[in-house]
């Protein structure tokens, strides 16, 4: 399976993502944002970081970069597009995903392990995954998901909510909501569920000696679903 990771000026999780994808068997290519086209891929990843220094709004400048038209065309033709952290912010700014990631409720940069509940498994990303709750890592200042009431209703009606922040045993309450996101939302799909945006970093949880292995589960499972 082939993947492409797009690098923007200020991306800083691109190489971690490259390591993770290769570890689980993807043939990955790194693609610079100024390119017009993307090599033939089964998966495109927009990595975490601070593209364009988070100027104007997080992800807004990257969402107008040269490469994005190819990403949008790929997504609209059914291709899998995964945006992690800043990648999620870019996806909302392109309009591929609804809503926006606002500044965290308590104005702090959060960097810690959290638990998320998988809310939908009828998709390529989470189908067949054995666990319902994953321990992943978040590191962001703008992860507070917000959308209009109409958009939220659409997300709920179409089962587009992918992940919610929760406790280790699955309690989705305010105490376990690190950033103030509506309904504890940590990740969402587009309507066809080929585009996934998520704040947590699965690529940071791929080694049991360094962190944890729930990211490994995510990548192994995704690769299995694509084969």
């Amino acid at each position: 399976m082939k993947s492409s990771v797009i690098i923007f000026p200020g991306s800083n999780c691109d190489r971690d993502m490259d390591v993770a994808l290769k570890k689980f068997g993807f043939k990955n290519t790194m693609v610079w944002h100024d390119n017009q086209s993307i090599p033939k891929s089964d998966l495109i990843v927009l990595p975490g970081g601070f593209s364009y220094g988070d100027y104007l709004r997080c992800g807004s400048i990257a969402s107008k970069s040269k490469i994005i038209k190819s990403v949008i065309d790929f997504a609209n033709s059914g291709g899998l597009v995964l945006g992690v952290c800043n990648g999620f912010q870019i996806l909302t700014e392109t309009g591929l995903l609804p809503g926006i990631l606002q500044q965290n409720k308590y104005l702090n940069f959060i960097c810690k392990n959290i638990f998320v509940k998988i809310k939908d498994k009828k998709n390529k990303y989470f189908k067949n995954i054995k666990k319902d709750i994953l321990e992943l890592h978040i590191a962001h200042n703008e992860g507070n998901f917000f959308c209009t009431e109409a958009e939220l209703k659409n997300l709920e009606d179409n089962n587009q909510i992918a992940l919610t922040y929760c406790s280790s045993n699955g309690l989705e309450d305010e105490i376990n909501n690190p950033n103030g996101a509506i309904k504890n939302i940590a990740g969402i799909f587009n309507k066809n569920k080929n585009v996934l945006g998520m704040m947590p970093h699965p690529e940071r949880m791929i080694d049991k000696f360094l962190s944890g292995e729930d990211g490994s589960l995510f990548f192994e499972n995704l690769l299995g679903n694509l084969k």
């Binding site: 104007l56 807004s60 700014e93 609804p98 809503g99 926006i100 209009t148």
Partner: peptide, 8 residues
């Protein structure tokens, strides 16, 4: 298109 995000 760019300067404002009309969601918020």
């Amino acid at each position: 298109k760019l300067l404002a995000n009309l969601v918020i």
